[in-house]
């Protein structure tokens, strides 16, 4: 009995970091996503049609994006917020620390080493883990410039 509580304490100390590490956080999911997405998109693959995208992106977001592309309502690379993937971006994407908004929603700014972030990735905690629900870029309507 004397050794019971110290043993429990020791077990907690040993296993807690492992349990924590098992659950990827918002930045991890965003980093993993872009590591997977950028080379595939740059190489002419079709990441949006891959089943693997569900590991990173919220299912309704994928469905809605497919609709938007099929209706030609988007003509840019949604997740990059641009028309092309510049050479070197694959190795130069910088994922900034997440900004928690609620217990289940976080923002992850993404950019490169030369600039401030230009993509704001919204992630939401789902049963399966954190998933990307949308991105916002730094563009705004010409109305705002007048």
């Amino acid at each position: 009995m004397k050794l019971f509580f110290p043993a429990i304490f020791l077990a907690c100390l040993l296993f807690a970091p492992i349990a924590q590490a098992a659950e990827p956080g918002p930045e991890d999911v965003v980093r993993d996503f872009y590591t997977w997405y950028v080379p595939l998109e740059a190489g002419g693959g079709a990441p949006l049609n891959s089943e693997e995208i569900y590991k990173y992106v919220y299912l309704p977001t994928v469905s809605n994006l497919r609709i938007l592309y099929s209706m030609a309502m988007i003509d840019w690379m949604y997740f990059i917020c641009g028309q092309e993937i510049l050479p070197g971006l694959i190795n130069d994407l910088v994922v900034h620390p997440a900004v928690p908004i609620t217990d289940t929603v976080s923002l992850v700014p993404v950019g490169d080493s030369q600039t401030k972030p230009w993509i704001l990735v919204f992630v939401q905690k789902e049963k399966e883990g954190w998933r990307i629900t949308k991105v916002e870029d730094t563009n705004y309507s010409a109305l705002y410039l007048r």
Partner: peptide, 21 residues
């Protein structure tokens, strides 16, 4: 918020809901 020197202007507001069509 767009900053131009000391002048500021709200140029866009986003909600936190997932992408909709």
């Amino acid at each position: 918020v767009h900053q131009d020197g000391e002048s500021m202007s709200i140029v866009k507001i986003a909600n936190i809901f997932p992408l909709v069509t």
